[in-house]
Design a protein around this nucleic acid. Structure first.
Lengths: 177, 177
DNA sequence: TTAAACATGTAAGCTGTTACATGATTTA
DNA sequence: TAAATCATGTAACAGCTTACATGTTTAA
């Protein structure tokens, strides 16, 4: 499926970037629905360059330090657009280790169940608060054709998802008590 | 992390099973939060047997056809219980290709966005209906120490999650229009 | 008699994680 | 001057998917 390929091409549509910058983006901004380490990104960029979907210029900071700033090519943009506009089957529900534990909760005593649930709850509330903080700058819906519109949509989705998980945990706690 | 290991051990806590039965379980009942193909399960069972966490008896149906019915050992049960009762960090938010697309929706025209969203919506509603059908037999909360209690908890979670995704899609559609 | 279900395995390839490996530049 | 950040790469391994491979039993 080459999803990483399209994640990178999509970012490069916004503006040229270095591998390092892409990695940063994948581990902060996009992290609520996508991520990748630099060890995956650098080889993928090399591959995309070989395929003619991106090109790069070398930038030098200071005396020696080189950075490759990648730009999406016309071929790359065409490939990306084709992918972006295609209908797709919904993906399998993602694996969830905590739900797996809860599935087996018949093997736990009640106090342990509640302890595990409340531990998860605390962590999820923390994540929700981080997301809400990210949402504060959006005082209104961004223009539909700006990059910020996409950012906004997925941020709303991340907040809703997080609230939903907490609601489920609360329900589980009430069932256990 | 060996999650598959614990998923299998957990199932075997309920009662002895063959690899084939485990695979079936992983692709129907548990599929809302876990899954695995037989090509992963058979090698894992072999490994668990080598580690002494499970054992098996050979069953013969008809004249020739052999099936290995696996049982969890004492060591296996101990290992599983230790894992089950351990607190854990919440996992990274799962990757979501559709959210990735929506993140890049600035590159789509409005009609395409709505088309993709409504396509996803239809599929998610279908999945939700399947889940609701599975939920019909539960006329009341199962006893907290039965296996059905775990089944019930994760099924409620799956339904809530599914409803939440649909709510997010609806929100996106309304923002796009 | 044929299709579906039962039953077990291996191999190739892709995706992703963690660790290894190196070094420059900037900021406190 | 030391720590954080910038910057790029490779290697080993774990996890998962798809395809290959084979054969039996049961139910329509």
């Amino acid at each position: 499926m080459r999803s990483l390929k399209y994640a990178i091409l999509g970012l490069l549509c916004r503006h040229p970037m270095t591998g390092y910058e892409i990695a940063k983006e994948f581990n902060s901004e996009l992290a609520e629905f996508w991520y990748a380490n630099h060890s995956q990104i650098y080889p993928e960029l090399k591959k995309l360059n070989d395929e003619g979907l991106v090109s790069y210029d070398i930038e030098i900071s200071g005396e020696i330090l080189e950075a490759k700033r990648y730009t999406i090519t016309e071929d790359g943009f065409e490939d990306f657009t084709k992918w972006l506009n295609k209908d797709e089957k919904i993906q399998k529900t993602p694996k969830d280790i905590f739900r797996l534990r809860m599935y087996f909760s018949g093997n736990m005593n009640i106090e342990t169940r509640v302890r595990l649930l409340e531990n998860q709850r605390t962590q999820h509330v923390k994540r929700l608060n981080t997301l809400k903080k990210k949402n504060e700058p959006y005082t209104e819906v961004p223009p539909r054709d700006s990059d910020r519109f996409g950012d906004f949509l997925v941020l709303q989705g991340a907040i809703m998802r997080q609230e939903n998980i907490i609601a489920w945990i609360d329900k589980c706690i009430s069932y256990c008590k």
